[in-house]
């Protein structure tokens, strides 16, 4: 039943949503490009990565339809993969960041 109402909803206005997301993505690309030329110290990387994460989330949620996927497991797959990616990066860097030499 829930599935039915969601698909009915998505039939009414997906185009508006798709074009809106597309415009936001282009805007964010422009913003990230311009901000890179400003002097923000360490925050240049932070801003660039946050914008990239927002863009990736938008693509996943609305273009890849995670938003209306009734399937919780798909979200679990994404989060699990990201968690293990963070494990790889985090525990590896835990070695490099705590070396008294180098």
């Amino acid at each position: 039943m829930a599935d039915h109402s969601v698909s009915a909803h998505s039939k009414s206005s997906p185009l508006k949503l798709y074009f809106g997301v597309w415009a936001t993505l282009l805007l964010l690309t422009y913003v990230t490009y311009r901000v890179a030329f400003l002097e923000l110290g360490p925050f240049n990387s932070v801003v660039a990565l946050v914008i990239a994460a927002i863009k990736a989330t938008l693509v996943a949620l609305f273009f890849m339809h995670v938003w209306r996927a009734g399937e919780k497991f798909i979200k679990a797959v994404i989060l699990t993969s990201l968690f293990f990616l963070l494990l790889l990066l985090g525990l590896t860097m835990a070695d490099y960041m705590t070396r008294p030499w180098s």
Partner: peptide, 22 residues
């Protein structure tokens, strides 16, 4: 199983602190 890999590297020259954690 994914949290323990560096116990193969204790003598390889990695950080002692990371060694303790692993």
């Amino acid at each position: 199983g994914f949290l323990v890999w560096a116990h193969h590297m204790f003598v390889a020259g990695m950080s002692v602190y990371a060694g303790l954690v692993f």
